[in-house]
Design a protein around this nucleic acid. Structure first.
Lengths: 179, 179
DNA sequence: CATAATGGCCGAATTAAATTCAGCATCAAT
DNA sequence: ATTGATGCTGAATTTAATTCGGCCATTATG
């Protein structure tokens, strides 16, 4: 197993561009980070030490933020997923609101453009726990209202993918933008 | 590195309950799955082989779905995050709509209760690419309208956490539910 | 109640992988 | 052309994963 003792967050290099081989490596490791460097090297056309060197660099540069176990929510008794939109009075990102980061039920906190201020992704055991979390949110100063979208089924859920769609089909009926 | 050759998806055991030690293990591995079994064992109070045995079981049972590299979106040129709500005519989950799973920009697809049918989490290079993706969505039969929430800042984003808030503070002004 | 059977753990031993290192080739800048 | 830097390879070394036999506790069983 790769025991990386080097700094991961500090010492960001000036971010040498991620080349195509790096992208392939990322693609493989996003899919399964438990493979050996021998196998990784074989899949991207490098020797084990070279593959290792690349991965170390990707970690150091911060391109690979972490290597994590992905847990089945049901296995840890959190079958209920919801997205909570929060309207706030004034600026939404207050320390009081950020404090809910401590709840392990809260997985994401974003500020968004559009008609709401903050957007949360939360995962709870049941509707009762969701209610508890919402009441906790309502107690936060500045919170005006919330709208919750409870997920019925999840059809896709995966980490950030390294690939990018090269070209989008020219939208029909669309004028050519200036920029 | 842990070369797991066993089945991970098949052969789900009747899911022996995840005990407190398992939960600790999950907590550690969600945080950093690159540590050695020696270190893992030390953190949860087990010998290396015992820790290893536990992890193997968690994988076999599906509690650990995968071990993945978490990529910095900026490093792979995807700085723009958005949540797209899609209203559809009739049942939203059509094969045509599911086909967008192939876009590496699409990270999540959920069907939700509330005033929309589907909810997508997408990550693109820029607004142009988001427009391309939206036009792709609009081309899909049955799609009536979309609303996009573009993320300005992300304050928290992490994988499923194994912990659960034991007890929510009794919501003030709340009647006691029957169930 | 005794006793077998099971499951889970430990420590030691073995195997496999991570990691280091000494060249070697390539490319860019002097 | 020469120097320096970068990235690669294959061999060697160190470290970790994995296997295995035995022990203990708990539970099922005669």
């Amino acid at each position: 197993m790769d025991t990386e003792t080097d700094d991961v967050q500090r010492n960001r290099q000036p971010a040498r561009e991620v080349d195509p081989i790096d992208r392939k490596i990322l693609g493989v490791l996003v899919d399964d980070a438990t493979i050996s460097y021998a196998e990784l090297g074989e899949r991207v056309g490098l020797s084990p030490p070279a593959a290792h060197e690349r991965v170390k660099r990707l970690r150091r540069s911060g391109a690979i933020r972490a290597t994590s176990a992905i847990i089945d929510p049901k296995a840890v008794k959190k079958p209920l997923l919801a997205f909570v939109h929060i309207d706030t009075r004034g600026w939404g990102k207050t320390p009081e609101l950020m404090a809910i980061s401590e709840c392990p039920e809260v997985e994401e906190i974003h500020s968004v453009a559009g008609d709401t201020c903050m957007l949360l992704k939360v995962r709870t055991e049941d509707t009762r726990a969701l209610e508890g979390l919402l009441s906790r949110i309502y107690e936060t100063p500045g919170v005006v209202s919330t709208r919750s979208y409870v997920v019925l089924s999840t059809y896709l859920e995966r980490p950030v993918q390294p690939d990018i769609t090269a070209e989008w089909p020219a939208p029909r009926h669309m004028a050519t933008p200036v920029y």
